[in-house]
């Protein structure tokens, strides 16, 4: 006898309820733009306040960072595909791409943790210079958002597995998808402003 998967019936959302939740997330994104804007401002103000041997040019390893960037950009695409699958009621496609997003997000986190660990082991800690403080705060806040996103994804995967695709799980996936793309947008600017421009330095 084949084992049957147990599907739990979830509540349903009207279109209006889904739209309200998505709108709520947009307001949250507005607040997040302000948060990251302030952190970028702090970084741009303090990135010249370094100690010998601790400048962005000497610290950053761009090959690892471009790999992390590709991972996060790919995770953004798989997340979009997952939501697209949900919109078309393709449970398997949606579930597969959400798991892929989680794996890519976790790999990105692993690379970031490895980078931070390397700096700390070399003695470049949070308090060693104003530049390091602003770097850890900016990149660490972004990493915390990725971690929160990964936790959110685990909960979504449980919901999807139990309830399959309903208007309720679709609304949750849509809200998550917006959040994840926003985290990706922030990373694009961190990669450009902190790593690329920081590593090479500017000719004045």
């Amino acid at each position: 006898m084949m084992a049957e998967e147990k599907i739990v019936f979830s509540k349903e959302f009207t279109e209006e309820e889904t739209a309200d939740r998505v709108l709520g997330l947009w307001f949250f994104i507005g607040a997040e733009i302000v948060l990251f804007g302030c952190l970028f401002g702090v970084y741009l103000t303090l990135n010249n306040h370094t100690v010998p041997g601790e400048s962005p040019g000497e610290l950053f390893e761009l090959k690892q960072t471009i790999l992390a960037t590709f991972l996060l950009l790919s995770s953004s695409f798989t997340c979009a595909q997952s939501f697209l699958g949900a919109k078309k009621n393709h449970y398997k496609k949606s579930f597969f791409f959400l798991i892929s997003t989680f794996v890519l997000g976790a790999a990105f986190l692993g690379l970031e943790a490895h980078e931070f660990f390397k700096y700390v082991r070399e003695g470049h800690t949070f308090t060693s210079s104003p530049f390091m403080s602003s770097f850890y705060i900016l990149v660490g806040t972004h990493g915390t958002h990725v971690l929160a996103g990964c936790t959110w994804m685990v909960l979504l995967l449980i919901h999807l597995k139990r309830e399959r695709i309903t208007s309720y799980t679709k609304a949750k996936l849509e809200a998550f998808s917006l959040y994840w793309h926003f985290v990706d947008v922030v990373w694009i600017f961190i990669f450009t402003v902190v790593y690329l421009i920081g590593k090479a330095g500017i000719i004045y």
């Binding site: 998505v22 947009w26 804007g37 741009l44």
Partner: peptide
Amino acid sequence: IQQGRRGYKWVTISSGLLIAGLAILYLM
């Protein structure tokens, strides 16, 4: 975002960017 609510999306982004831009300008 849903068709009828696109305005909210751009108002949210532009207001967030305005305040973030001012914060960056003041700090610099």
